[in-house]
Simulated assay, not measured.
Amino acid sequence: MSVHVDSTLGPYDVHIGRGVLNRLPDLVGDAMRVAVIHPEPLTMLARTVAAQLDRQITMIPVPDAEAAKTAEVLTRCWDTLAGAGFTRSDLVIGIGGGTTTDLAGFVAASWLRGVGYISIPTSVLAMVDAAVGGKTGINLGAGKNLVGAFYEPLAVLCDLSLLDTLPERDVRAGMAEVIKCGFIADTGILELAREDLTDAADTTSDRFAELVTRAVQVKATVVAADFRESTSQGANVGREALNYGHTLGHAIEAHAGYTWRHGDAISVGMAWCSRVSRQLLGLDHETVVMHDDLLGGLGLPLRYEQSAWADLRRIMSLDKKARGATLRIVGITEFGKPVIIDGPDEGALEAAYRELS
């Protein structure tokens, strides 16, 4: 299966299925040098991928998880490319979860103002979210993804067989982003998941493959219409719709020192956003309950520290969707109908959080 992303910076395909990693040699093109950026625990997989390529290979191991997305690691990647003599005709491959693909994409975007990039995501989260859509970047102590660039890959290879050894908790965390796509755009995702939550989280099932493909299609459609996240206003929501649950979710990640999985934090963020939407947008109670049933049924958390609200609200002020001193969050009025809430009532935000706690 393939999903076409009609990007303004250059269209590309997301290949989804078992064994699609075999397509890599045909995608590398004429690049003489290839850098393979990978987390240290995936060294063996990275070597297996590199062995497919008859090129000068530079292996760049990086720390696992959010520890990779720092200015220090980014600088080390640049220095390695410089030492290997990388030119604009060369290529970067990112292998790993969302943090690695975010970093590797930014390395490719910033080296010589842009070299070719191929993404090989190895987690559910990376396949349906981080590896698709062209957002790349690193974190700062002040917040997540505050430094980065919009940059598209040449291709994305979502080989589902790479998920066979992924811990169950990581699979379920990635499913948070799949469910998000159901609430903001494709209600068929919600129906498919509700039919059998266990099968939905089984990486070997046809149901899982369809859910991943539908989630990738949602993201491809949204980013093609608003690549640089610049068109949203009121009910006319572009790429910012993908941030449903992320304003609070990113704040939780920062507050927890990035020890929480992204999907876990986004799950709490969506449960919170559904309650904010009920108070400020008239979202029906049944849809709020469905958030809890689906997310909770997948084993995802629905709450965070009760006493953390003041700190979380301060961190949310740094959210990328904020405009000046005005907070902007994504809510929904009903299934598939996202809305931008500008300057939401502070009492409603806190009340929604207290309800969760």
Score class of each variant (00 low, 15 high):
M127C: 12
Y151C: 02
V171L: 08
L211Y: 08
A254Q: 09
V289G: 10
A65C: 09
E286A: 14
Q56C: 07
N139D: 06
L280F: 10
L140F: 07
W78G: 03
V92D: 02
R194K: 10
V5R: 02
Q279S: 15
V5S: 01
L283Q: 03
V115M: 12
M1S: 03
G105E: 02
V3W: 01
T75D: 08
T203D: 06
A254F: 04
T136H: 05
N236E: 06
D54K: 14
H255Y: 12
I340V: 09
G141F: 08
T198G: 14
A241M: 06
T75E: 14
S357A: 15
G331Q: 00
D170F: 15
R275V: 10
L298V: 09
A71D: 15
D90P: 02
E253M: 04
A68D: 03
A35D: 01
A126Q: 03
V124D: 00
G245I: 04
L302E: 02
G141E: 12
V223A: 06
I93D: 00
G133D: 00
S267T: 05
W111M: 15
W272Y: 12
L248Q: 04
E346A: 11
E191I: 14
H262W: 04
I315C: 01
I329E: 00
K69C: 03
L166K: 12
V128Q: 03
C77W: 06
Y117V: 11
Q217I: 10
G297K: 06
T87I: 15
F183Y: 10
A201R: 04
P39T: 05
D6M: 10
D199P: 07
R113T: 12
T75S: 15
Y244K: 02
S317Q: 12
D13A: 07
L197Q: 09
G10S: 04
I93G: 02
G114D: 13
S89V: 10
G17T: 10
G29L: 06
M59C: 07
L318D: 01
V171C: 05
G343A: 13
L125I: 15
D79Q: 13
Y151H: 12
L45I: 05
L294T: 06
D6I: 12
H291K: 13
D206K: 07
L74H: 11
P167F: 13
K135M: 05
A67G: 09
I120H: 05
E177M: 12
L300K: 06
I266H: 03
N236W: 14
A149F: 10
D293M: 11
L197F: 13
H250P: 01
T259M: 03
D345W: 11
M175E: 04
I179M: 14
T43S: 08
V34L: 10
A215G: 14
D102H: 13
A256K: 09
S274W: 05
A348V: 13
M290R: 13
D90R: 10
S274L: 12
F86V: 15
S205E: 05
P301C: 03
P301L: 04
I315G: 00
G238W: 03
F106L: 09
V171I: 14
S2G: 07
K321V: 04
E66I: 08
E253L: 06
G234I: 12
D13Q: 14
L53G: 01
